[in-house]
Simulated assay, not measured.
Amino acid sequence: MIYKKIANTIKKIDNALVVTDNDPDGISAAILMKVILNRLGKEYGIVVRDHRKLDNLRDIIKNHSSYSSYIFLDSPFPDKDLIEMATNYKDRVFIYIDHHKRAIPEELPENLKYYDIRALGMEIGSTAGIAYKVGKNLFKNDFKRYSIIAMIGAIGDWMVDEDILEDFNSEYKNRFVQNKIFLYPTFILFNTFLFGNSKELVENGELLIDNPYAFFSSIDYDFISKRIKSFYKKIANLEKIYESEKLLVFKSKGTISIIASFIHVLYPSKILIIVSNTADNFLEKIFPRKYKVSVRCSLEKMDVGKLMSEFTSRYGIYGGGHPAAAGGKIWIKDLGKLIEFLESRI
């Protein structure tokens, strides 16, 4: 069983740097991994990476060279970079836990432990769900109290796991915890984990279970309120570019991933595309050439992650993701081609 293998791998390490994404799934997975490492008595550090940027794996390792192990959560670094790092640092262990990849590389260094559940042919779930099941494998039903955190990550990636939902319902349904704060996952997701400070959330996340009052007291809700207002302002200012029976395209001024997930609920029968100008340098801010793209789809037998990967392999720059949620970066001039490409595949 894969979760037992991951648990056994983690038990063998002395210390680890946990590298995670800054979206709700990555944040939730990191909180759960913190609980696991704390219970196992392991020393660790945490780096929260910005999923809007292409972090350099070499720099992460170089800047945190004191660790003997590295755990990557919800961080789909290119396989060639993972293999290169493992090859260059044979005295260290690299543990890759994710759900983005579609195949396992043919040759893996012995010190690269590759646990991508999609690549392994398993049912696709959230990274937080993987971490939760690892914790439950280690600590049995006592770990069910953290199902609320796993649910937040699962909802954030639109990948609610029935087993985790069952655990959550058995632990929290119709229940209040100390200080009468009711833990309702969608509230926490959209008002705290989605808009809060990711580093603070990872640092204080386990308090959500052990001391909810302290957790909520640690949250800067003025910061969250400003982000929510900005978010809804961007929704109000969306510009519709294209609409057909099965496809809908909007242009936004930013935050496209969250907006795409939010708007898709209103149009579940369509493939939804949100684009926004993106710039890699000052000149591109003046003369935009690239779009960042976020795609959502609930249509059966449609895999927009695969389609984005196929399209960008032809027209560049990059793209990919999950069957129901994908993203990438394209040239502005190629948006029409992307629309035609997706229309032809519906």
Score class of each variant (00 low, 15 high):
V249C: 01
D167H: 01
E171A: 04
T255S: 13
V275F: 07
L194N: 15
S225R: 13
I258Y: 11
Y242F: 13
F216E: 01
V202P: 01
K240D: 08
D161H: 06
A154W: 01
D222G: 14
N169P: 06
F231I: 01
E203Y: 12
I259C: 06
S261H: 09
V265E: 11
I152F: 08
A150W: 09
T278N: 05
S276C: 12
L207H: 02
G205N: 08
V160S: 05
K251M: 13
I228W: 00
F187W: 12
G196I: 09
T255W: 11
S257P: 06
I224Q: 00
I235Q: 00
A150F: 09
P268Q: 03
K240I: 10
L208N: 06
L183M: 10
S276G: 06
A236S: 14
P185F: 02
L165K: 12
T192L: 11
K233Y: 14
E203D: 11
K240S: 08
Y232A: 03
L194E: 15
M159A: 14
S269H: 13
I219A: 02
A236P: 03
I224S: 10
Y172L: 00
V160Q: 01
F216P: 00
L165C: 00
V202E: 07
L207K: 15
R227G: 00
L165M: 12
L238D: 04
A260E: 05
G196Q: 07
D161A: 06
K246V: 10
T192A: 12
E243L: 06
L238A: 00
F187R: 10
E203H: 11
L208K: 02
V160N: 05
A260R: 07
G196K: 04
N191L: 12
F168K: 00
V249N: 01
N197C: 09
